[in-house]
Design a protein around this nucleic acid. Structure first.
Lengths: 229, 229, 229, 229
DNA sequence: TATGAATGAGGCTTCATTCAT
DNA sequence: AATGAATGAAGCCTCATTCAT
């Protein structure tokens, strides 16, 4: 897999998805184009370094129009994470958990593979949104709390169930589930951050993701089938 | 280990260290106090959101004085990573690698423990600097390249040797050393970022670091002694 | 007499009066509610500090509707004084003059008492309108001229006749009638401005108005019956 | 006395006086020129209708300079009344009270003449300042309270002593001193407001002021010598 | 060398007004 | 007739940077 030209551009297909979602929510086309322009610019230049006039130009609206929909520039920033929790975007992500929980025959490896590989598309499409959030979270406690409540905690709760299930199947080592989640999350996040945020030019080679899966498996599974590879 | 009150304040002892380092380098006391003030403010509020006048006030110099030493605000930002590569700071960090490299009897676990645990102090003291760098790297390709050349690549090169050694001792699984480094770095970085940058309020409990070490060991060692625990 | 809670709110009864007047004039209900909203807001916050959107909200019409009736915000301001010259409001005011003019037996004191006391209600009900006018007159020569022509000069002309009559009855000292009017007007205006515009919190006590009447009487009457009190 | 071309321009001599006063206070020349420009523009166009850029242009400074001295535009407005309470301006005004209090042989008429006539120059020179204050007092309770405390109450207290003295000399009718002050103030204020604020084009003729003095005298003195004129 | 007053470009935001519906 | 979304000019204010002292 080659290095994409620009990891921080939102793909057209994805824009459509956002549009569909949000128009259902009662947002106008203009409002959505403002939001998308903001995401792209914030993720490229940073929130503070982006002028509202630039956003307006990119969204092809008058500067004043921005403030009809978002009282302040900060409100515009805070509207971004909500894109993630919209049905067709985030729910897809969470749905897999339920699927896995219900399929008794699945083992942890299959789950992890799905989590890591299938979600690659999700991550690479959401990259700009995630980048903005990650960049700004340290400076906005309100944002931090909102993300924690609407995205992180629900995800952790779902994950705990999954982990507990595989633990009870004897696949996973016996340390607290939250610690296991921490370890997995930490690895995945580190990988993501490195390649999409900090060093986007870095080449990703196909095997790296496989290694990552192996690594995680080894790290937390009792008898990893991969270890001998 | 409790959650420190303020992870982003530079400790006095550390300031002295920076001072000593840089005075040797020919920097005046004023110049150093400007640099330290910048680090603290940038890490707390972000680079763009920090006014040079604030830096001046915190450093107890006149606004104009900043620009005597640093032509532009950006130059001041770019001067920050160099603190890390100063002899008494970073060299100490690298020295242990050499030490370990030279001690043939050491095994990988001991190395990793040192890397993770002994460096905790280093990381927690350098936190503000690291935070600034991590925050700003995505927006400044020059910074990215400089960090890559002066900090990351040298470290990777050192590490490769260490890894290779342990690989030749049969302790580590047989995948490319760079991939191994990637995995370790990714885990460590994820842990660090979570606790020092993104969610500083999160409580860290002692065991988590132990779990992390186990996890990494399991992930990349052939017969991890920890695996059965 | 206590300090009214809010001297700048237009009473309901008064609003109805305005409505009746203006509907006769061919104004729609919407147009009138816009005018009333404008009066209340202008008098509370000042003309420049009031947004047309606020007026729209208060009048419960769309922003655009304002501009259907009043080409510009300034036109809306300039429409306010006309409320005062509407039949049922101002004519009532002027009628008393005629009444007094025609009753030969009345003396000046009775006239003045009526002018001051009976009009208190008028003044307190018109307060917001008067306040807007007084506030904006200094900055709009057109407004000044219009008020001068439609309100002040007609009133002065009426008053001159009254004054001349009492002068011919030997009740008033012999200085030019316009000067007398000036003096009276100045006193009344000063009193009104102080209590309704500049310092609305100031308590008014019943006697003050009596003193004012005495004072004016003393000031311009030949043998004031009050002087010895 | 003819109608001055522009009642709202601050005379050069007066500017010098303000300068001297304020430089003693530690204000820079620029700061003073900003204040004077603000007074002139606010009094001509109103506070809200004056742009800070206009003030800057008139004061011949950069717009940013205004905000070095006055944190906000409102602060600049609130700095204006203090000009009035500066030593060489306002104290002169108050000094006469003391003078009169100490000269036993003075009668009330002489006092009033001084108050009205001698102060004409003061009033006409302070006109722009007074106008700004009067215009803005209704919209800024803080301003109202400040003026009340620093200008009005002290003046009233001084006046009460003067009035009491003349009352004890049997010259003034026996109603509460505060009511007397109210009446005088109301008349003077009305006169001033009419000619300097509301209707500056109105011609003032010499006699009018004489009539005003007579009028006030008649209004509150026991045996006004003027009454029979 | 160090200061801090001064600058002016540019940022965010408001608001009177227009216009398609 | 009425709406309210859209506009963009203009306002207040901040801030990196310069420069005379």
């Amino acid at each position: 897999m080659k290095c994409e030209v620009d990891k921080l551009t939102i793909k057209k297909s994805f824009k459509k998805l956002i549009s569909l979602d949000n128009i259902e929510d009662g947002m106008t086309e203009k409002q959505i184009s403002i939001l998308i322009a903001a995401i792209e610019l914030f993720s490229k230049k940073g929130y503070e370094a982006t002028a509202t006039s630039e956003i307006a130009k990119k969204a092809k609206v008058a500067e004043g129009t921005i403030f009809r929909y978002y009282k302040t520039k900060k409100d515009l920033l805070f509207a971004i994470p909500s894109v993630l929790s919209k049905a067709s975007l985030f729910e897809i992500f969470l749905d897999d958990f339920n699927e896995i929980l219900n399929k008794d025959h699945e083992n942890f490896e299959i789950f992890l593979r799905k989590l890591v590989l299938n979600r690659k598309k999700f991550v690479s499409e959401t990259a700009p949104i995630l980048k903005v959030i990650i960049q700004e979270i340290p400076f906005h406690p309100e944002l931090r709390n909102r993300i924690l409540g609407t995205v992180i905690l629900p995800t952790i709760n779902k994950l705990i169930k999954v982990i507990d299930k595989f633990k009870s199947q004897g696949e996973i080592i016996d340390i607290p589930s939250t610690s296991i989640i921490n370890l997995i999350a930490t690895s995945l996040f580190g990988y993501f951050f490195l390649h999409y945020v900090a060093m986007p030019e870095l080449k990703q080679n196909e095997e790296d993701l496989d290694y990552l899966i192996q690594y995680i498996m080894n790290g937390i599974c009792k008898n990893s089938t991969l270890q001998n590879t």
